[in-house]
Amino acid sequence: MKWFDRFLKIYTYIILALMYLPIVVLIIFSFNESRSKVVFTGFTLENYYRLVNNFMVWDAFYNSIWIGVVVTIVSVLLAILMSYGVTRYSFRGKAIVDSIMLVPIIIPEIVEALTLLVFLVILGFSLSPYTIIIGHVAFDISFAYVVIKARMAGYDPQFEEAARTLGADEFKAFRKVTLPILAPGIAAAALIAFLESYDDFIKTFFTRPPGFLTLPVYIWNMASRRGFPLDLNALASFVVIISLVFAYVRRRVERGVLR
């Protein structure tokens, strides 16, 4: 069976390499000067100059960041409340509450997006960046909850009880004991919540006001035209670098959680 193991190994390497191929190709072509676009004819930085001078991209990037930050803060706070309640209190219907929290992860995003849009419009909300935030929080609570609850369920509530015995009330015990222990879990949850919001396209696309751009919406606007807008390739290099930084930070944070 030696040959079979070797086959598996080579196969795995090939598929993994193929996973990276589209990204590598995007970056290579960001340096292409050709007008035919799909054949590499010569090196240029022109696409990058155009990217740097394109204020729409930077505006979209800024929107993605601030929306992501607000969404992260709100959903992590709500998720902390929820995880604390579920792990520290017993009440009727706990299992149901727990599974309700998972529903937004399973429902396809396009359905979430359009039901929210119908709801907002029927109630007479006008679409604004805040409607995007409302929509993102609705799925991010679930992602943050899964991570924080896992952390909270994983440690001994006796620490809190000890603090209570020593005279701290529940709020103080939470602030001084629970929160520091939870910190790595909260950091991991915040990172996931931020990335889900920062990278979200479908829900943003449905609930945004006309003309409002986030980075994924801008990418869609460029990519959904026929042809090969090479500025988008330059943007891809930029996005790839940022994503790699996020991936690295996340890895560090997750190591912290495991420790």
């Binding site: 589209p22 990335l195 396209f201 891809a236 994503s243």
Partner: peptide, 17 residues
């Protein structure tokens, strides 16, 4: 790691391939 990079960009990259 590749799945950290925006989904739309990866699909756009496949267009080149």
């Amino acid at each position: 790691t590749p799945f950290w990079i925006n989904f739309l960009l990866r699909v756009y990259g496949m267009r080149f391939i």
